[in-house]
Structure formats: C-alpha cells, structure tokens
C-alpha cells in the first residue's frame, strides 16, 4: 500500500430504498491517464499492493500443493495406518493421525483442494447467472426488471445457508458436483443486484445511447458495451464470492449438510476434529488454519483488485484539480 492522497471521494450518491450492500464504484468504467493502457495501469497498481500480491502467491501455492500432494505425501487420504491412532504430528504423519488412523495431512490437503475447487466453481456459476440477470434486469427494465428483482428479493429473504441446509437431505449419497450447483444457484443474488445497478447507469451512458441510435440490437449492446464495462466489478465480485462460498461450504459441511462422507472438505475435517479440540488440537488446527489463510488470501486479492481496477480507489490516484463539474445524478 502506498501513501498517496486522502481526497478521493467517489462522489456517488447514497443508494436509496433498496439496500445495496457493497458500494458500487460507478466510475470503475472510466479509464484514465494518457499514454498508459488500462491493462498495464491495473497491473502496476495491483503489483504494488503487497498484501494482495502475497494473497495471490499464497493461494496459488496452497492450491498447487493440495493438488499435487498425492504425488509426494506418504499417505493417501483414504488410507488407514493401523499402527498409529490419534498420534500428534510426526515425521511419517506430518499433521498427525485420527482416532482410526487416517493421515491428517493427506485429509487436510484433500479437504483444502475440495473446498477451494468448490469455491472457484461456485463463483464461476454465480457470476454467469448474476451477469445475465443483472444486465437483463437493468437494461430492459419494466416487467423483466420487476420480475427478476422480485426473485432476487425472495432469495435474499432466506439466507442461502438455510435453503441449502433444507435441501441437503436430498444430497445424501450424491456427488459434490450437485452441491456445487446448489451453492451456485444461491450465491448470485447480491452480485446481480449490484450489476443491475451498474447497468442502469451504463444504460444512460452516452456510448450506449450512441450504439442504440446506430440501430444496434439490445443483445449486441449488452454483449459489446454493457458486460465488458462491468468486467472490473465482475472480477472483484468473483473473488468475494469465492471467499464467501468457501465459508458457506465449510459451514454447511460442518453441520453435515454439505460435502458428504467419504469425501472430505475443510468443514467436515474441522467438525470431526472439534469434538476433542481441547485435547488433540492437531485434528482441527491445521484444517482451520489453512481455511482462514486461504480465505484471507482470497479477500486480500479481492481488495487489491478493487483498488487496482477502480480508478477512484483512494490509493495511487492522480490528483487532478478543478473543473468539469460532476453532475450528480440523484437516483430515485
């Protein structure tokens, strides 16, 4: 983080009525600074953010290690060592063993891999749904908007934890892919709302009007102008969703509503380990620690991306003086 100015107000009006949980960087659209392309500028800003960079490296390492661990780890996650039950970490069992002789390292790696994969896949599904719903609701307005937003409101009334937990009995014995689909199905609402808000402003932007006055069809306008101009917000939101999904997934798994045995996730590991947490802390501390570290890494990446992609970010902003009265659009 650099220490530049403190003046950056985004100049956005306060959202009214319908609650909007995340501040929408309306001007994330703007590219600036002559001579440098946007890409290099974003990269430069991101690379300067030490925490975000660390987050990226840590996350990549964790995922790589968890994926490749079967190649070098002495034990497999579904192997039992009948000679060592409930042993603390040692040379042969790096993270110790469970009551029934499972290798905690292998299990933790397996769980980490599963949790990260679920997070990434869910975020991918969620952003697809969110961008389609958000862009259509915002661009077409009218009954399309009202209908879609009603669904969003409805799904927001019920915490997704609750819905998935209720459906979970149907998941017993089925693959984790189904669980991912379910998570994705209930993770897009807030993003859709934000994207809708942004589409509403973009729709009134003159370059979109210009395209309309050229006779460009709506589908083309959404594909060519609306979605690309929301890309930065979408990227930021994907990282946020990855983080929150991992938390949700582990939470559900913790209660037995998520990943089903014999498969493991960090959540199930923590649950299994927590019963005797105070006497055999290695059973849950490694899983818990890695969970916190990976979500933290994801969050730092998201924060770094927000600063890098949003030119109105307070850090590293060009201090430009005077003129161009920014017309404040009062959103009704």
């Amino acid at each position: 983080m650099t220490t530049t100015d403190v003046t950056g107000g985004t100049g956005k009006s306060v959202p009214t009525g319908g609650a909007n949980p995340v501040d929408v960087p309306l001007d994330a659209i703007e590219a600036e600074t002559e001579g440098v392309t946007r890409g290099t500028l974003v990269l430069r800003r991101f690379l300067r953010n030490k925490l975000a960079l660390t987050g990226l490296v840590v996350l990549a390492l964790l995922y790589a290690v968890s994926l490749t661990s079967p190649l070098f780890a002495p034990w497999a996650y579904d192997e039992y060592d009948y000679l060592s039950f409930l042993q603390p970490p040692s040379a042969s069992h790096w993270f110790g063993t469970t009551q029934i002789g499972e290798d905690v390292f292998a299990q933790t790696m397996r769980g980490l891999q599963r949790s990260l994969t679920i997070g990434l896949l869910t975020a991918a599904i969620s952003i697809v749904i969110a961008s389609v719903v958000g862009a259509c609701a915002g661009y077409f307005g009218g009954w399309v908007d009202r209908g879609l937003m009603w669904i969003v409101d409805l799904l927001l009334v019920l915490p997704s934890f609750l819905i998935i937990a209720v459906i979970s009995p149907a998941l017993r014995g089925s693959s984790w892919i189904l669980f991912v689909l379910l998570l994705g199905l209930f993770a897009w609402m807030i993003t859709a709302r934000i994207l809708r808000g942004m589409t509403l402003t973009l729709r009134e932007r003159e370059f979109v009007k210009a395209a309309r006055f050229m006779g460009a069809p709506s589908g083309l306008i959404i594909r060519r102008h609306i979605l690309p101009n929301m890309a930065s917000l979408m990227i930021i939101d994907v990282t946020i969703t990855v983080g929150s999904t991992i938390l949700l997934e582990t939470g559900l798994s913790y209660f037995g509503f998520g990943v089903q045995p014999p498969d493991v996730s960090l959540g199930t590991l923590i649950r299994d380990g927590s019963t005797a947490a105070l006497t055999t802390p290695w059973l849950f501390l490694f899983a818990g620690g890695l969970l916190v570290v990976s979500v933290l890494a994801v969050n730092f990446i998201g924060d770094g991306l927000r600063d890098a992609l949003d030119p109105n970010a307070r850090r590293g902003r060009n201090v430009r003086e005077d003129e161009d009265p920014e017309v404040e659009v009062e959103r009704a």
Partner: peptide
C-alpha cells in the same frame, strides 16, 4: 446521426 456533449462518456472506453 448524433454527437453527444461529453466525448469521454460517449466513447466506450474499452
């Protein structure tokens, strides 16, 4: 055809 007021806003920055 039309030319708008704010040339920055009327050109898709991407």
């Amino acid at each position: 055809q039309i030319v708008f007021q704010d040339p920055m806003a009327s050109l898709d920055p991407r």
